[in-house]
């Protein structure tokens, strides 16, 4: 039990660091990497709880999250390349056309 809460606290810390990164950085590739960090923090929660409860469903979810992350990486990086071709920059502040 104590072991489980250590894992959950670590996962919360990693998730918060990822949140700060998404909000604070201007480079969209680094923002993307921070989103990957948040996904991984959630994966750690899934595996820790799956181990604690003796049930493999959480680990199957982690497998699906990894698949979605791989698809997201492919589409996201293609979008960054298209963005760079249009604006000659990968700064999130340059994508302000729809900003209120």
């Amino acid at each position: 039990m104590d072991n489980l809460s250590n894992y959950l606290i670590l996962s919360a810390v990693l998730f918060s660091i990822g949140t700060i990164g998404v909000l604070v950085r201007r480079n969209i590739i680094v923002m993307f990497m921070c989103i990957e960090l948040m996904l991984n923090a959630v994966n750690l929660t899934f595996v820790a709880l799956s181990r604690h409860l003796g049930n493999l469903d959480g680990q199957v979810f982690v497998f699906f999250i990894m698949t979605v992350a791989a698809a997201e990486a492919a589409v996201g990086l293609a979008m960054f390349i298209a963005f760079f071709n249009n604006r000659e920059s990968i700064d999130a502040d340059d994508a302000s056309l729809m900003k209120w």
Binding site: S16, I17, T19, I20, L23, V24, R25, R26, N27, D93
Partner: peptide
């Protein structure tokens, strides 16, 4: 390379 640092840290 950073923006909104105080607000981001508060939200985190």
């Amino acid at each position: 390379s950073f923006h909104n640092v105080p607000l981001g840290i508060v939200v985190g």
